[in-house]
Design a protein around this nucleic acid. Structure first.
Lengths: 190, 190, 190, 190
DNA sequence: CATGAATGAGTATTCATTCAT
DNA sequence: GATGAATGAATACTCATTCAT
């Protein structure tokens, strides 16, 4: 149900596609979405034509990057949810989502896309993550670890916002930890 | 208290400058920074030439918009700080800053600019607001209303992040209120 | 009712616009529609930006060229129609339309556009020319100089086709004259 | 009588070549010459590589299409010339050539190619058709059915032009018939 | 001072053609 | 031989900025 390849796809083509995704992720994350396609192609060691063969549009490339991010997170989130007790699962997941967030506000966009509706491809993977977040939230609320009046939209908005907060703190680990404390304290009932 | 005028400046010139700032604020806020300068000029009822006479660069225009925002906030913040008791002042100010946040992520940028060091012009007004925020924070902490381990950088980052959170909730007032509760609860000691 | 300038338009702007139209006409006519916009701009001694300021689209430029051609023809046609007797007017006009046709099949397109429907601007001037042709045709038919069973569509198609015929004869004047004889003979009743 | 095959050529290769020619003819005729090679290949059920193996250039493909058209016409023309009396043969052939004309101006090009000297490959088949047309014309002229002052160039140009005329009339059969009457009347002596 | 025409570097995208699989 | 992935030159169009009117 996730990323099934229609046909095997030639080895080099797959390698190029992967390389393009990696480079694009890196570049979009660190330098924003404004970077020319040609530069991305060059950095991936392919011609522009190849980039556009794999992703018919710059937007499609961005979308693919976001989808992959979301899928990665969804996978890890799922693993967490299965292992820990509800409360721990919820807070660990919150951390995980935030920690996956890196550089620029690009990831913010990805998460935002999970909240708002986007293109078809994105919607699928964002739906997956939304479902998992909803489940985790419900579990934590039933376990009495999180305020009952919070809904999924607030949770998502809070994830996006906290991600932004962290971006502005950079690598200052103690400060980041204090923010986690503030938010987690605030999330608990009472 | 606001950008000193070198020479008297003709009345119409001043009017044009003001109009440009207003329009730019509106446009940047609602439609993002990507809007062509020409369109801003037209909306302000002047030619592009005039725009570039007042603001030598598009970036300079954006900067001016941000500065004015920061100044406005600083003014209101100052008023609040003078009137209420420290705790109330702090939280009221937090709300005020967030509520001034509207549309797009433009305002978030303004807040971000207060955190990071940007161009010279910005630095002046951001310094002002930083000073006030620092004072308010200290007051609230001494009054025992806010955790003592939080520094100014965390506060600013939190403002930026919460602003982002709110953007994603849009006009859902009850939800926004719940976010305030979460953050404010989290800010309090213990 | 023809090409009214909204506002005076600066002298240099008008000159550039005219130069662009001239160059485009020349270039499209002799080398076809495939010629890069940049080249047209360079040949007109302006930057691409100027070209696109005057004609927001390559298609718009082509359209403008065609319109001007049609207008020119319509003007001359009108003059002819007013002076001569119906039969002479009709045949003179036929010649005139064909003789205005030069190089490539670009003019064919222009005439075709008069037959089929095109963009709004084109339609206006093509309507004008169609009306005049219809009038001339009717006059010649009433004067007994042209078969009564021919309609306007056939006339236009014949103009386009004869224009194509002439293109393939190039500058061979006697041959062109023979074609005129063939077509004109064929047009007469019986 | 048609392009000699150097070596036997494998059965599937021959089938591919034929299929490509068919598809290209169809596509060029209905949608013009601008259609991407890749699309033609796909429609023919082969990869682009195969297309370029058979026709080293897009232009070569177009040329092959035209050659085949000309050959077909030449064949039918030859048959007609052998059967009827000179006058009838001439006019029937004229009709046949025109009626073979379908969609877009692609066929017009083919005819035009018979008039002008194009690439080597084309020259061969166009020479054949030119010879036949010359013979038919001479026959009709000696039979007193066509003006004596017309040469082969005029005839070819007239064929091309009339083809264009017909294109613009589309499927309006009565109108097409009237055009034939006009042209045929005009072609007769006096 | 204001205007808006001119500029031209910059960008996404297409497509004929080549070549590794 | 066949395939389709890779290539990259080419092209229409945009927009910040300058400067003649």
């Amino acid at each position: 149900m996730s990323g099934a390849q229609e046909r095997p796809m030639r080895a080099d083509a797959a390698r190029n596609r992967a390389r393009l995704l990696d480079v694009a992720t890196e570049v979009f994350t660190t330098r924003g979405v404004g970077v020319p396609t040609e530069e991305i192609a060059r950095a991936a060691g392919v011609g522009v034509g190849t980039l556009f063969r794999h992703f018919p549009t710059k937007e499609a490339l961005l979308e693919a990057v976001l989808v992959r991010r979301l899928e990665t997170i969804a996978d890890q989130t799922a693993r967490l949810a299965a292992e820990a007790d509800p409360a721990e699962a919820f807070f660990d997941c919150f951390r995980l989502v935030i920690d996956r967030s890196s550089g620029k506000s690009e990831f913010t966009q990805a998460l935002a896309a999970a909240g708002v509706d986007a293109h078809a491809t994105l919607r699928e993977s964002s739906t997956a993550i939304r479902a998992q977040l909803a489940e985790l939230l419900a579990g934590a609320q039933q376990a009495g670890a999180v305020r009952r009046d919070l809904g999924l939209p607030e949770l998502i908005a809070l994830l996006v916002g906290t991600s932004t907060t962290m971006e502005h703190l950079g690598a200052d680990t103690p400060a980041r930890e204090r923010i986690f404390e503030v938010v987690f304290d605030g999330l608990r009932p009472r």
